[in-house]
Design a protein around this nucleic acid. Sequence first.
DNA 1: TCCATTCTGGTACGTTTGTACCACAACATT
DNA 2: AATGTTGTGGTACAAACGTACCAGAATGGA
Lengths: 180, 180
Amino acid sequence: MTFTPKGEARRDALLDAVLRVLARDGSGGISHRAVSKEAGVPLAAATYYFESLDDLYVSALKRATAEQVALFEGLVSGDLRQFAEALYDWVYRDRGAAIAQYELMFLGMRRDALREDAEHWYRSLECALDPQGQHPEHARLVSMGVDGLLLRMMWLGEPATVDAVEATVRDLISATTSAS
Amino acid sequence: MTFTPKGEARRDALLDAVLRVLARDGSGGISHRAVSKEAGVPLAAATYYFESLDDLYVSALKRATAEQVALFEGLVSGDLRQFAEALYDWVYRDRGAAIAQYELMFLGMRRDALREDAEHWYRSLECALDPQGQHPEHARLVSMGVDGLLLRMMWLGEPATVDAVEATVRDLISATTSAS
DNA sequence: TCCATTCTGGTACGTTTGTACCACAACATT
DNA sequence: AATGTTGTGGTACAAACGTACCAGAATGGA
């Protein structure tokens, strides 16, 4: 499974397209034809670079997850403002993409091939909250809250401002500090 | 769209089948044929009682959501043990069904027809935590934590015992009490 | 330059899909 | 008993699907 640079580029274009289709139409919208059309490549390219639809699917998820993990891990620890901005941007900049990420999470629960990556993504959230690993129990509680916060943002569209997001994160953190 | 009692029973059987297929194969497994086969009725019944696949889908979600809401609302307020047991049973008794419920949540985010029900389900969690509506901000934070807890249970299989679930809920509640 | 590998893009095939249709059985109402 | 509504189940069909195939273009090392 080794490709030329140009081939690799086409492969990447297909993976990008998967994420766009996913963000636009949800997981039901994924098909060889839809993705290849979105990527602007012939149908056969999708079957040439990925041995099955499942492979295409899983590869795209792995990359999306890795990007998300990198985003979380790139956050300066303790900078709540930056953290809140990251959450805000992620959900509201492209709501479809954020929803897709969670849809993929649940897809990962049903596919062993994705489970490991999904757990990694999940735990990276904890690491962003507790980089030193000094308060694991605290991080655990806060990450639960942040997860719920993200769902609420996607769903209800609130908190609707960066400030409000930051305030909520601050509440979650300061609140659970006393219990850790 | 009114049906005879027997017709109504068949309709219900189809809705039940949707939930079973959903729990077993995920949202991608839903089709007229799969559902009718699962329900033990001919294909045409699925098209007779539901004007489209979307209608079947949406109707099943509405019922599943309503049941979930009833479960939450039936909880005796303040009885954390009972609440923890409800969460534990819901996730671990039939993990596929629990995952399906969340998959449907995300489906609801993309379909206006489901949005209202989804929000209702979501808010019923808050009501279970704060029946009197006396501490809305507190309930908001705790419900976020419980949401995250549910995801973690589905995903990582932890906390793995009723006691541990209860302890976590207790932590979430007592912790955020100080911030409300 | 030659040749083997890699990549291209069009086409084809067998399945499964959503949905429509229809002849008929069951039923309720008069 | 007659009649109109409602439910039944088999079948049909066009579309979309995953995937396989292949003739040839492009590419890179000998």
